[in-house]
Design a protein around this nucleic acid. Sequence first.
RNA 1: GGACAGAUGGCAGAGCUGGUUGAAUGCACCGGUCUUGAAAACCGGCGAGGGUCAUACCUCCCAGGGUUCGAAUCCCUGUCUGUCCGCCA
Length: 414
Amino acid sequence: MIDLKLLQKDFENVSAALMRKKVSPELIDELKARNEALKTAKAAFEEAQAAQNEMSRLFPQYKKEGKDVSELKAKLDANKARIGELQEAQREAEAALDALAMKIPNMPDADVPDGADENDNVEIAKVLEPRRFAFTPKEHWELAETNGWIDFERGVKVAHSRFAVLNDMGARLERALINFMLDFNRERGFTEMSVPELVNSRALEGTGQLPKFEEDLYKTDGEDLYLVPTAEVPLTNLFQDEIIPEEALPVKMTGHTACFRKEAGSAGRDTRGIIRQHQFRKVELVCITRADDSDRVFDEMVQCASDLLKALELPHRLVTLCTGDLGFSAAKTIDLEVWLPGQNTYREISSVSNTRDFQARRAKIRYKEGKKNLLAHTLNGSSLAVGRTMVAIMENFQNEDGSIEIPQVLHKYL
RNA sequence: GGACAGAUGGCAGAGCUGGUUGAAUGCACCGGUCUUGAAAACCGGCGAGGGUCAUACCUCCCAGGGUUCGAAUCCCUGUCUGUCCGCCA
């Protein structure tokens, strides 16, 4: 959630930032008005309550002195009714504000480029030269088929479209990649975690998937549990409602989960292959930092993901997302796009975001600095989407006969 | 799934015959005295959110509702935890 105090104090700049993320001026005005309405309602309610408390305190005194309490009681009864009304009004104001505020995205950082969509993202670096092929490189689904690594039909049979089965070497490669990535991250100081893959709505609100993006989530029937769309949700929310001692920061975690997404709104996109599945595995990085340390940790995470690709000998580029492509919770995001020779293009394989205190305010993640409790900064980044990494390996390491080499670093994992 | 017990500040643990109790006490932690230094001892501080220039003031003793002038304390519902039984990877 954005800082409503800041909105009140520095309306010009906050609204300008929100408008860069395409929040309408009307909505921003409404947010401000509702915030002020709540303040007014709260003041009235608390005033009536203070009066009630004060009068109530007279009660034991009166009794001790043997005085008649009936008049006092009448006054209290009258005020009590008023309190009820004022409380109701306060609650309504609060609910109205909340409903709106929870759907307002984070403010982009000042250095995030303006832009309408992904075409306006800004490339900041290229790492490794794409290999030159003496033949026309094939796309991964063709390679997967000839090598017998992926069974698309049977995935659909047991589940639904956009589900696939990995056979034999495909399954082993997936497992090898997960192990390799987790080890790689661990060596860089990230603590390996294994977390629930079903989470409650409070957690999803904390990281920003709810209330706005419910249609993208798989929900269990009759229970407040959703399948995780990313390990970011359980990992970040591990610290909800906590005040972390300063010396424990930064918290650096890595974990692997399956991720489940309905992909609502992407009908027809990437229907072939395993680029866009309802279920995929991902190794994630999540960090919680002091407010003044998140930029440094952000760079560290980007570097970590890039080095991982480098270790796998996969050419890629780093791209800063423009305001139009930035996610709901992110203040800044750098995508890593891997080169896919079969598709002759770069495709997203990792995405590292700094949400600043946006998620921390929702999930109440704080840290202690001296005597003060401050909102932490939370960051998340894929250490790499495993399925897309397999796609990248297939396409970049293919031979003319359709066989596939395995990157050197994975040999000991297979 | 059945039966019983419980949920209080960072932890432990009182209070639960309803009224300055936001909450005793111990530990931990922070500051100070003492000490060559450390420990011990002693003194002081020490939950969170809102509000205010700062006070005042309001809220929070799992959550929600109720009784009452007044609830951590009584009643109801839910959630979670523990123990025993059943079931099970």
